[in-house]
Design a protein around this nucleic acid. Sequence first.
DNA 1: GAGTGGTCTAGACCACTTC
DNA 2: AAGTGGTCTAGACCACTCT
Lengths: 227, 227
Amino acid sequence: MRHRLLSGEFKIGDKLPAEKDLIMAYKVSKMTIKKALDILVDEGLIVKRRGSGTYVKLLTVKPVKKNSPIYRFNGTSASHPDKQVTSQVRLFTVEQVSHEVSEKLHIERESHVYHIYRVRKINGENQVVERSYIPINLVLGLSEQHLYGSLYMYIEEELGLKIQNAQRKVSVRKATEEEAECLNVTKGDPVAVMDQIAFLDTGEAFEYSTSVYHADNYCLEMEVTKG
Amino acid sequence: MRHRLLSGEFKIGDKLPAEKDLIMAYKVSKMTIKKALDILVDEGLIVKRRGSGTYVKLLTVKPVKKNSPIYRFNGTSASHPDKQVTSQVRLFTVEQVSHEVSEKLHIERESHVYHIYRVRKINGENQVVERSYIPINLVLGLSEQHLYGSLYMYIEEELGLKIQNAQRKVSVRKATEEEAECLNVTKGDPVAVMDQIAFLDTGEAFEYSTSVYHADNYCLEMEVTKG
DNA sequence: GAGTGGTCTAGACCACTTC
DNA sequence: AAGTGGTCTAGACCACTCT
């Protein structure tokens, strides 16, 4: 693919050459041109109108960065590459899975999971309280040491597993006393709660976690596209 | 495309016939099979491994519904098709755009916008406080009557415009006195605040809005895929 | 090396928009 | 009717995974 189009040669609202002409100009096939343009559509740079033509979008706002890796959300490692992210590990055990967690992870009631309870800090400030459950048979050899850094990095780089997607629910409520203490805020202050089930590319659920963010430190950006 | 595969004929972890065989079986071309299977991958039903084969995912959870139209989020019309959604219109005027809003919508400082302030109710219960700004030149003929129902439906169906996408920011804070009064909650209670800029398929921003939800009534579900 | 999916070509046919 | 993008075919070639 050649992303070279639109480096500035076209103006807002301009009509692009027809696919037919691009085929001749670049000596590629129709499918290839279509794919290339579809990528640009996806990036929000152009608009296609069947039967009419392809136009440069009335450029607006920088689109919200796509391709954000799964572990990029505010408050954790990857989203703050320049800052110091550390963790205080409050609990790290192996236990038999609870009924609730076994349902979330779709594993047998007799299975065992790591139970991890961490307070994550950015530049020394407490930002997130996170409790996660990970089946021991999927993530072997996990030790407390890995929890101070990025757990996901260990899973991907050391174990060679591929993290594919995650389902998240975000809700809002008041901080419990324990959460307030962890986050250095007042009980009853607003917090954002993110429930997450994360999956490997095999389709196996490998983590169920609940993260609690103090309101001031939580902001979620997203782009919604109409289907 | 034929979605007919996997209506139950394959078991978890099974290997599917190679694309080569599917081509013969269904008498379609390779590109077509590939597209069809890519859709299933997108739906989270199968996994492809280059050089190895295509497998049925170790089936897990029902994927979060995709294709959710842009105006489908908890607390507004389309997400509660069975319930009675109404609005109390507290303000509906045309005014010169403020500096802040002109930047969000990328319009001239001299432009005029509708300024709409509504309290939205579901089954009579106050759920959302919403303030929105809409350029008058994009959405002609808007009258107070349209605000009691779905504004988006008016824009799409009456005006024939196409809404394409929206950029959203969700944050959390304490309710102000005015918000608390509108939502029938206590000042200081947690609320979710959603800032949104919505775009037409031309790339023009047609709405900047801020919606405030009471914590108990807000839950955001999403699926994050690793890029 | 045999088998797999990923990408690309060259061209046919269709549905839609515009005039 | 002419021009546009959308979809599909049939087959080539490549990169990767397995054994």
